[in-house]
Simulated scan of single mutants.
Amino acid sequence: MIKLTRVFKTFDGGRSYAVKDLSLTVGVGETLVLLGSSGCGKTTTLKMINRLIEPTQGIIEVGGKDVMDHNPVDLRRQIGYVFQGIGLFPHMTIEQNVEIVPRLLGWSIRSRQERMQELLEIVGLPAESFAQRFPDELSGGQQQRVGVARALAANPDYLLMDEPFGALDALTREALQQELLTLKNQLKKTIVFVTHDLHEALMIGDRIAILHEGNLEQIGTKKDILNTPATQFVQDLFTIKRPDTFI
């Protein structure tokens, strides 16, 4: 479980807040989507969970333990992280990219190889065809699949995803969204997924947390939010283009 209790973040000594008094819980095996426009605080919130950014105030717990009591490097190795830029190491093969965290954790060569082969198969890039390739030999969609495999390599209980499909073309993005739905049902990870895309949020999230100017406007299931918007902002957001196919 991931739990945030009255979390604040300011970058300018309190003159303004990127995140204001945010409290929420992500249940075990749940996918929570943080939805909002640029600058609303969603990526800042995500990065505070694995201490890439530290909160100004409040408590963030992962697995029942305050993240500030963790060594930040050890914490990040326990939490998978996928972001829009993909971030594969260009001088490493796909095999080496996927195995990097297990290697840092001291896994045996055999264990690393078995895990790499298993994950590449899961994301649709069989090792016999892709393990020895380099990132620049893959399409954008294939690279993002490798990014997901790398994030899952050490078998973390938690997965943070920061607009992972935002830079891809529409057809590839839709295909990867469908694959993520299959993957999350198969692996039962606890996922926090950041997006500004309304359609993507409704497709992927078990629940959605809507952020606006650092404030949590509403959190709930897609049905709750569509049928009972908590604020005028939420009502306006979903009135502009109501996606009735998701009700």
Rank of each mutant, 00 (worst) to 15 (best):
S37R: 15
G39Y: 04
C40T: 13
E118T: 12
V73A: 13
R115D: 04
N155H: 11
P164S: 08
A127V: 05
G147T: 09
V33R: 03
E30K: 00
D66W: 08
L35E: 10
E128R: 11
G85F: 14
K65F: 07
S111H: 14
E128M: 06
F130M: 07
E128H: 10
G36I: 07
D74L: 14
L119Q: 08
T31Q: 09
L152K: 02
S108F: 12
P102F: 09
Q57T: 06
S111P: 00
F89S: 06
L34W: 04
I59P: 00
G141W: 02
E163W: 07
T43G: 06
P156R: 03
F134W: 12
L119H: 09
L160F: 05
A170I: 14
G63M: 07
G63A: 09
G87K: 10
S108K: 09
E30N: 00
A154G: 01
D136M: 13
N71C: 11
V123Q: 07
T45Q: 07
I59R: 11
L152P: 00
M161T: 06
T44S: 15
L119M: 11
D162K: 08
S37T: 14
I60C: 02
L88M: 09
V98Y: 01
F134I: 05
F89T: 12
V123E: 08
P55C: 10
L159F: 02
I100S: 12
T31S: 08
G63D: 12
E30R: 00
L119C: 05
R145N: 07
R76A: 11
V148G: 03
G140R: 04
A170F: 09
V101F: 02
G140D: 07
V146C: 02
L138K: 01
E114K: 15
Q113R: 15
I122D: 07
Q84V: 13
G141Q: 08
A127D: 01
I49N: 06
F134L: 14
Q84F: 10
E114A: 15
A149C: 10
Y158I: 11
L119P: 01
L46M: 13
R103T: 14
G39Q: 04
I59A: 05
P164A: 08
G140M: 06
L168Y: 05
E137V: 00
Q117M: 14
N155S: 14
G41R: 00
A151F: 03
I122W: 10
R103E: 15
V98T: 10
Q132S: 11
E137I: 00
K65T: 15
L34E: 04
T43Q: 06
S108N: 08
V146L: 05
L105I: 11
D74C: 04
M68Y: 04
G63Q: 08
I53M: 14
I94F: 01
R76Y: 08
E163G: 05
R150S: 02
S37N: 10
I86S: 02
F134C: 06
E118P: 02
L138T: 05
G85H: 14
Q113F: 09
E163K: 04
A154W: 00
E61K: 10
P102G: 08
A170L: 14
M68L: 15
A170M: 11
A127W: 01
Y158Q: 02
H91Y: 13
Q132V: 01
P156H: 07
S38V: 14
G39S: 06
V101G: 01
D169G: 05
Q96F: 02
R145S: 04
C40W: 02
K65L: 13
L152T: 04
P126N: 09
T45N: 08
T31R: 05
E121L: 09
Q78I: 00
Q132R: 13
